[in-house]
Computed example of a mutant assay.
Amino acid sequence: MSSSASLPVSRPRRWWPWIVLIGLLLLVVLRGLVVETFSVPSASMSPTLHVGDRIVVWKPGAHDLHRGDLIVFDGDGVFAQSPPAPGGLAGAVRSVGTVLGVRVGETDYVKRVIGLPGDHLQVGSDGVLMVNGAAVDENYLPAGTSSSATAFDIRVPAGRIFVMGDNRIASDDSRNHLGDPGGGTVPEDQVIGTVTWRYWPLGSWGTLR
């Protein structure tokens, strides 16, 4: 009586763990280099942005700024004092977070670009913003609001930008730091990116560019 040789049982290859891993790596790369999300913490950008709005920031936009852009930037050393660098486990966690595009314990601000490097900005007693000698129509401001109740005259230094919140009577911005080093301006290399989209609340979702 003949017996047939037993054949080895083939097991299907499990690709899904690799697919999940690749997907997670792509998300990390996108978050670290391309996009990042933020929650608006205050009313300083009202009526354009409101407390609790969730926004998407386009990080490559940090290298191509225009007047009027909405931006998110790291305010450490500009509008806020830089905290001492943490050591030990906290420092390691912060370093990993930076690599992954997640800032831990830092101060980020959302404001509007008013002046670019080399721009001459002026606001007189009439509250009208002048950029390089021309009046600016800031139609994004609340009705009846002047450009600034604080008069100023500044030439934006090279490599820096001048920013203000749309809620001019309740915004901590470049005007509040005119006497600080840099005249309240923000280094371009501290800009995280431009605000391009609001995805929450659902009733207000849409582009902001």
Results as ranks from 00 to 15, higher is better:
74 D>Q: 05
77 G>H: 00
82 S>C: 11
85 A>R: 15
86 P>S: 09
90 A>S: 01
91 G>R: 03
96 V>M: 11
99 V>S: 13
100 L>T: 13
100 L>A: 15
102 V>M: 10
102 V>A: 13
105 G>P: 00
105 G>S: 04
109 Y>W: 09
109 Y>L: 02
112 R>F: 09
117 P>W: 01
119 D>L: 10
120 H>T: 05
123 V>Y: 07
125 S>R: 14
133 G>F: 07
133 G>Q: 11
135 A>T: 14
135 A>I: 10
137 D>S: 12
138 E>T: 07
142 P>L: 09
142 P>S: 12
143 A>R: 12
145 T>Y: 06
146 S>F: 03
147 S>W: 08
150 T>M: 12
152 F>L: 05
153 D>T: 12
155 R>N: 08
157 P>S: 11
162 F>W: 04
163 V>T: 03
164 M>W: 01
167 N>K: 09
167 N>R: 13
168 R>I: 04
168 R>M: 04
169 I>Y: 09
175 R>K: 00
179 G>A: 15
179 G>N: 13
182 G>E: 03
183 G>W: 11
183 G>M: 06
191 V>E: 00
192 I>M: 08
192 I>E: 03
194 T>Q: 07
194 T>L: 04
201 P>G: 08
206 G>V: 11
207 T>H: 12
209 R>C: 07
209 R>P: 06
